[in-house]
């Protein structure tokens, strides 16, 4: 494409295009590596596009937010068992397929390094730096036995579905 065409394209008012959404809200429901990863890629991209970006973490999506040093969470035996069988923390995410007890995941991380793909941890740090709002869901935190101090720093105050939907008004919304 010539320089002139590019300049014209950039200068064209977006008359025929619908008004672009200025907000992006992602509901991060899954705690699997291959779903959290694109969630963070989309969140950082949305922020880079100047969109007010929020990720609302609920159900299994909360576990990637568990701090590195925290192992067993929960009050009662069921919640404790849950954390034992579903280890939290960004370093312990599994692939939704071909995980092979972690071997598949290790290969995926190796490939990502080879291809200079930013890791979920790097993307999470970038998201925070760019002002992406990371909101844990209060109800599922209570349900699954996760306390605020079990989760990483830099999150917004836990909130409910109404806050999430209020944020989502007029936004691009994704449920991942």
């Amino acid at each position: 494409m010539s320089v002139a065409t590019l300049e014209r394209a950039a200068a064209e008012p977006a008359a025929q295009m619908p008004e672009p959404a200025e907000k992006l809200v992602i509901f991060a429901w899954s705690g699997e590596l291959d779903k959290i990863w694109p969630t963070l890629i989309l969140a950082t991209s949305g922020a880079a596009m100047g969109k007010e970006t929020t990720v609302f973490f609920t159900f299994w999506g909360l576990f990637p937010l568990v701090k590195d040093g925290v192992r067993i969470t929960g009050e009662n035996w069921m919640q404790k068992m849950l954390s034992m069988m579903n280890r939290g923390g960004a370093d312990h995410l599994k692939l939704s397929k071909l995980n092979f007890g972690g071997a598949g995941k290790a290969m995926m991380m190796h490939l990502a390094k080879q291809h200079h793909v930013a890791s979920p941890q790097e993307l999470m740090a970038l998201a925070k730096e760019m002002g992406v709002k990371l909101v844990p869901c209060q109800m599922t935190m209570d349900l699954l036995g996760l306390k605020r101090e079990d989760l990483i720093d830099g999150l917004e105050e836990p909130a409910g579905a109404t806050t999430a939907l209020a944020d989502a008004q007029g936004a691009i919304t994704l449920f991942i």
């Binding site: 991209s45 880079a48 200079h116 930013a118």
Partner: peptide, 13 residues
């Protein structure tokens, strides 16, 4: 050498 979305993210920042 960097992959999506880093070129856009770093540029925007």
């Amino acid at each position: 050498g960097l992959s999506c979305p880093i070129p856009i993210v770093k540029t925007a920042m």
